[in-house]
């Protein structure tokens, strides 16, 4: 089981959390104006990164807050957690 560092509550076990997938996906500002390809990109296409991915987690059985994390998809290791709306920390690998 993963030990995940909630930025609000500290380290807690994985089953208190809900996984929210890839982070920093923005909804096209004017959906009427984008073509089908761009809309499909937004809805369905994910980077599926092999390596370090920025992703969202929710501490659903704790404080209930969403936050972002940088986690490696090969080792599962969390390299950093940071708040929603903040940019991903750089220089990690």
């Amino acid at each position: 089981m993963l030990l995940i560092n909630c930025p609000f509550c500290g380290a807690r076990e994985e089953h208190e959390f809900h996984y929210g997938g890839q982070a920093h996906i923005t909804r096209p500002a004017d959906p009427e104006q984008v073509d089908d390809k761009a809309w499909a990109d937004y809805l369905y296409y994910r980077k599926n990164t092999l390596g370090l991915q920025a992703e969202r987690w929710q501490h659903s059985f704790g404080c209930g807050q969403w936050f972002n994390a940088l986690r490696c998809s090969q080792t599962h290791q969390f390299k950093a957690v940071y708040k929603m709306g903040d940019d991903a920390p750089e220089g990690l690998s």
Partner: peptide
């Protein structure tokens, strides 16, 4: 398991 992974292992729970 819910999360992205290429590691061929998952979580205990």
């Amino acid at each position: 398991d819910p999360y992205l992974s290429y590691s061929q292992r998952g979580s205990w729970q």
